[in-house]
């Protein structure tokens, strides 16, 4: 009697690929929805830039009336393979716009020197919470990103701009 050959392929990734949209389709759909939900005051462009090691899709919100553009976030990936992908979220608010923040105990000059020294002398583990390996992770992280305070504030600011008359410049 021969032992049946085992199917070693993982269930989760293969199954979920059937149910979850492709990352690019997902981005394009969010772009369409943003236009619809703002009655066309905001549109989205998805330009791709390339460098030696990666491609970058930028989610660029356009205030149509002002011809103003602002990249809300970026998606970095290897040429030709959209997964894994890494989201680059918007910059965090500066101290004066945060409801709560921590001031380092040491002055910035000393702490900068200290951190530089640590970087040079000590191996560190860097964790990137914005890396998506599967379509499901891509969908979930995109949802988390679009719900972040920074993205919501940026969209609110752009909608506010759209309500004002365009500047002459």
């Amino acid at each position: 009697m021969t032992t049946p050959m085992p199917d070693l392929l993982p269930d989760d990734v293969l199954a979920e690929t059937n149910d979850v949209p492709d990352p690019m389709e997902l981005l394009e759909f969010q772009a369409e929805r943003l236009k619809e939900r703002t009655q066309g005051r905001l549109e989205v462009e998805l330009p791709v830039t390339t460098s030696d090691d990666r491609h970058v899709i930028r989610f660029v919100a356009v205030v149509v009336s002002h011809d103003y553009r602002s990249t809300i976030f970026e998606v970095h990936y290897r040429p030709g393979l959209l997964l894994p992908a890494s989201f680059v979220p918007p910059e965090p608010f500066p101290a004066f716009l945060r409801e709560k923040y921590t001031i380092p105990a040491m002055n910035s000059v000393i702490s900068n020197v200290m951190s530089a020294s640590r970087v040079l002398n000590t191996p560190r583990t860097v964790q990137n919470p914005w890396v998506a390996n599967t379509p499901v992770e891509f969908r979930d992280k995109l949802q988390e990103l679009l719900s972040s305070q920074e993205v919501k504030a940026q969209l609110a600011a752009l909608l506010s701009m759209a309500r004002r008359p365009p500047n002459a410049a």
Binding site: F59, E74, P89, P90, E91, N167, A168, A169
Partner: peptide, 14 residues
């Protein structure tokens, strides 16, 4: 003056 200098683009990371 605002009419003479105006931002037209900013990127995600600032």
């Amino acid at each position: 003056g605002e009419g003479f200098i105006r931002e037209v683009y900013s990127n995600a990371t600032g």
